[in-house]
Design a protein around this nucleic acid. Structure first.
Length: 581
RNA sequence: GGCUCCGUAGCUCAACUGGAUAGAGCACCUGCCUUCUAAGCAGGCGGUUGCAGGUUCGACUCCUGCCGGAGUCGCCA
């Protein structure tokens, strides 16, 4: 149930009636949204300003033509023209109150679900860390953003496939094999001295080596075997980390398998057929010409035809395909499996890669598929503002597991979503674990726990209060501003979900959760100053029950938002008791 | 030098893909616990949205040019 959408549709009908010749393009630009300032009413529409040009009349005159019709829409109590031509609409409180039984009936798992996505298949790829070492906090952020985006798209009605693309081919895997081989010799008692340049230095490779020796003995002659073992071992470690963070994938796609299946050839064939591949020589990069630059003829893709800056090479000088060519094959693979909408969550260091990847997807699908490539910026880990040292064990980075052991998955998931993903994120160990309102994770959980506390008292007073019973509560006694403000806020959740999904910005859900928590904390405290605002009023069962229904729907709404983020709502903060799903 | 991302209150960040008077938290002031968790709430202070133009009813948002930061730049992935 999306109140804004319902009114939006009514306004569309009205516009059609008053301006029968209105074009779809114009209609699509009409929006209905909650005004920033609550004194402007419950909803505002820009319809008059949008229609002004086509109608050939000033916005306020157009508004005059719409206003009577608006007042006839069910639930609307008033409409007035404001500012440059906005129409502010007021609704009956009862129209908003319908959200409460709706929330209670649909429950935390499904409140806010939308059919926006029309079950369109979307492939979303995230993490996709190379199987050469443990996941870092940088990977953690990508994993969380990807996983939450997938949750969000699923909630908005897309048919989501979650993919991990394993880069188990190429140079880095050979370096890994060499590094593990060296460590096996070390495990066998050889003094290997300093790890030479060009090898992975991380001590975690000792564990890989030990496990290899335990299983396969001391023989290091079989390179293939070592490579396969190391990849499997490290992927398994990665899977353990992801599972502990609650990050899910539907499929793990192996790059080596895609290459082995000849998918690069078929992808390049598709491009060749369109005349998009040629032999040519690239210009050196402008301004910064490397000393060793030499013009070289190579196989190039005409990515400039699709908005890229230069054409991109597909073959290395030894004839093998570049990473870019392999990626095209990967996208082509997903496209052939029915995904025209591809999202690929990558680190900010891939910024220069976005244009060519988008160009490739457009080209190989003949314009039918589209790639989104959100960039996830780096995480600065601090403690009381001081940078946290990097883990020696991992080589150079703080591992995901370090952070997980330190603060837990819930904190990580929430905090990592409190910034737009392109923004660098400061993650302060002290701040994210303290129990105060500086810590948004705590603040939201605290609101949920307070709701649960009220429910406990309510149950003592009135007996069991299941949601389906509360859903039938008479809400007429809810008349205070604080109550209506919360109801209106809850009613925006379906809209927030749709907009966040359209933008693929899961952090908006975290902000929404914070605002609901703030509204609830405010209501709670008003009850201290004003006894008539307390939730449970002796001798007034009707009012108490109505407020209980609202408190419960606040809890469900917070739980629904946390569900998208992937955080389990807590019933109590002291003992960290988890709510049963 | 090219490209990408970023620049918003003293600090950390939002702003519903172009909407009305740019909002929160921290910090700094002032209040609120015999009452369901004060782990909180209410109020005050704080802005030329990096700069200069442009587009239009209307710009933090779009376009152009500068300034500053990060990332990246043919056989790494």
């Amino acid at each position: 149930m999306n109140i804004f959408k319902m009114i939006h549709q009514d306004i569309h009908k009205l516009v059609h009636r008053v301006f029968p010749s209105v074009t779809e393009a114009t209609l699509a630009r009409i929006s209905v949204e909650p005004p920033r300032d609550a004194s402007h009413g419950d909803m505002a529409t820009n319809a008059a300003m949008i229609l002004s040009k086509e109608a050939g009349k000033p916005p306020r005159a157009v508004a005059e033509m719409l206003i009577e019709g608006l007042k006839d829409i069910p639930g609307v109590t008033g409409a007035e023209i404001a500012g440059p031509g906005f129409i502010n609409i007021s609704l009956k409180p009862e129209a908003f109150k319908l959200i409460v039984p709706h929330v209670l009936e649909t429950g935390a798992r499904h409140f806010g679900d939308s059919d926006l996505g029309q079950k369109v298949p979307v492939n979303i790829e995230y993490v996709s860390a190379n199987p050469t070492g443990p996941l870092t906090v940088g990977h953690a952020r990508g994993a969380i953003v990807g996983d939450a985006t997938a949750n969000l798209l699923a909630k908005a009605g897309f048919a989501v496939n979650r993919e991990y693309y394993i880069n188990d081919s190429g140079k880095q895997v050979e370096v890994l094999t060499d590094s593990v081989t060296l460590r096996i010799r070390e495990v066998q008692g050889e003094n290997i001295g300093e790890i030479p340049a060009g090898f992975y230095p991380g001590e975690y490779l000792k564990d890989v080596a030990k496990a290899y020796v335990e299983k396969n003995g001391n023989d290091i002659s079989d390179r293939q075997k070592i490579r396969a073992f190391a990849i499997e071992y490290l992927i398994n470690e990665i899977k353990i980390d992801l599972a502990e963070m609650g990050v899910k994938h539907d499929m793990f796609v192996s790059e080596a398998k895609i290459l082995g299946d000849g998918e690069v050839e078929s992808a390049l064939q598709a491009l060749t057929e369109q005349g998009l591949i040629y032999q040519g020589v690239l210009e050196p990069p402008k301004g910064k010409a490397p000393e060793d630059w030499e013009p070289r003829e190579q196989t190039l893709f005409r990515s400039t035809q699709f908005g890229d800056d230069v054409d991109r090479p597909l073959k290395k000088s030894d004839g093998s395909s570049t990473y870019f060519a392999n990626d095209i094959a990967h996208f082509y693979h997903m496209y052939k499996h029915g995904y025209q909408r591809l999202t690929c969550v990558v680190g900010a260091d891939h910024g220069g890669y976005v244009k060519r990847a988008k160009a490739a997807v457009k080209a190989m699908s003949a314009g039918k598929a589209e790639l989104h490539m959100p960039l996830v910026a780096i995480v600065h880990v601090t403690e009381n503002g001081n940078p946290v040292r990097m883990s020696k064990r991992a080589g150079t980075f703080i591992t995901l597991r370090d952070m997980l052991e330190r603060v837990g998955a819930g904190v990580m998931r929430f905090i990592m979503l409190t910034r737009e993903s392109g923004q660098t994120l400061e993650f302060d160990y002290a701040r994210v674990t303290e129990q105060s309102k500086d810590n948004p994770y705590f603040y939201v959980q605290y609101a949920h726990a307070r709701c649960c506390s009220v429910m406990k008292h309510a149950t003592n007073m009135f007996g069991a209060l299941p949601d389906d019973v509360l859903a039938r509560t008479n809400l007429a006694p809810l008349q205070r501003d604080e109550e209506m403000a919360l109801i209106k806020l809850i009613a925006t959740f379906p809209r927030v979900v749709e907009q966040a999904a359209a933008a693929e910005e899961p952090h908006r859900i975290a902000y929404f959760a914070e605002s609901v928590a703030a509204g609830f904390h405010a209501w709670w405290n008003k009850g201290r100053d004003d006894g008539t605002l307390r939730f449970l009023i002796e001798g007034d069962k009707d009012l108490s029950m109505a407020r209980i229904a609202l408190v419960r729907s606040v809890a469900v709404t917070i739980a629904a938002a946390l569900g998208v983020i992937g955080v389990v709502p807590l019933q109590e903060l002291r003992s960290e008791v988890e709510v049963a799903a």
